[in-house]
């Protein structure tokens, strides 16, 4: 837990410091995937209800980000990637992050229930609990599968969007969750391969440290294969169509090619070209998820004009 006592007492936090506690970059991914889940659903909400649903899903995600920063402030201070965050840099106190996280969690769940339905609100509450408690407090520092578990929490927004519109879970929503779930671990394992000192310094049991780097390379390939199967499988559900299928095929061929390259290399090869394959895999995986969900959105938006869907 956070034991950070270097809050700068001369500095008064500005509004942006509290916004930074909500991890706005993660929120943007949540907004996008939840929006796609909501738009792809066969039931449409009133635009105001849709806006509120997305807004409160995003606020819920931000709340769990704030709780994560409160608990992880000690390791955030060690890692280069995270040491500029508001708590380790002394711009806000851990108590402020805890208060903001708890308050916004309650507000977001309550408001999503009122704006959409209580089934969606239940899923949002579960997601916040899963990310803040199960992942951050319990398993992140205890198991090398931490990224797999954390990925599960980040995967729920399209399902919450779907449930907000339809009131129930369906195979399409589950497959969208599964796609993000399978995408997350190889994305972060590739990052851990070329940013190794960060996680080592923070004593977070990343797969690269506990099982070795050759094992991490094998894991990346295995997850890339499963991810490709799920991505292509999603094309044959009601949210898929020709556009999505073409996108899924092209993207997954590229990912599998990169994953095979990572699997075939050893550390000497990787260090010789400054981890170019690992960096390429990481960069493309950022685009990968965005393009897949954009294709699902395109199918949903074009369907009324006779273009999207099967």
């Amino acid at each position: 837990m956070a034991d950070v006592s270097h809050h700068n007492s001369d500095y008064d936090p500005v509004f942006g410091d509290y916004v930074a506690l909500l991890k706005p970059r993660v929120m943007s991914l949540v907004v996008f995937t939840a929006f796609v889940g909501l738009m792809a659903a066969p039931v449409s909400l009133h635009p105001v209800e849709s806006f509120c649903a997305i807004l409160f899903i995003a606020i819920g995600a931000g709340a769990s980000g704030s709780l994560n920063m409160w608990w992880d402030a000690d390791i955030d201070a060690v890692m280069r990637r995270t040491k500029a965050r508001p708590i380790p840099s002394g711009r806000t106190t851990p108590d402020a992050a805890l208060g903001l996280g708890v308050a916004l969690s309650g507000l977001s769940v309550l408001m999503l229930g009122l704006a959409a339905n209580w089934h969606a609100a239940g899923w949002l509450a579960f997601t916040i609990f899963f990310y803040a408690v199960v992942y951050t407090m319990w398993l992140k520092r205890a198991t090398p599968q931490n990224i797999v578990i954390g990925g599960a929490a980040g995967a729920f927004p399209p399902l919450i969007g779907w449930v907000a519109a339809t009131g129930s879970v369906s195979i399409e929503a589950v497959l969208m969750v599964a796609l993000i779930f399978m995408w997350t671990p190889p994305h972060f394992w590739a990052l851990a391969l070329f940013m190794r000192s960060d996680y080592d310094d923070a004593k977070v049991p990343m797969l690269t440290v506990t099982h070795g780097r050759p094992s991490t390379r094998r894991h990346i390939l295995a997850y890339a294969v499963l991810q490709a199967a799920l991505a292509v499988g999603l094309a044959f559900t009601s949210v898929g169509g020709l556009i999505y299928l073409a996108v899924a095929l092209i993207c997954n061929v590229i990912v599998l090619k990169d994953a095979l390259r990572i699997w075939r290399r050893d550390e000497i090869d990787a260090e010789a070209d400054n981890f170019s394959a690992e960096r390429a895999f990481f960069r493309f995986s950022l685009l990968y998820l965005f393009v897949h969900f954009l294709a699902i959105l395109a199918e949903a938006l074009l369907a009324p004009y006779g273009f999207g869907g099967w």
């Binding site: 008064d12 936090p13 500005v14 509004f15 942006g16 509290y18």
Partner: peptide, 13 residues
């Protein structure tokens, strides 16, 4: 001074 430093916070809230 405190009001001036906290203006951004107060306006944001």
């Amino acid at each position: 001074d405190m009001h001036r430093r906290r203006r951004s916070q107060n306006i944001g809230v």
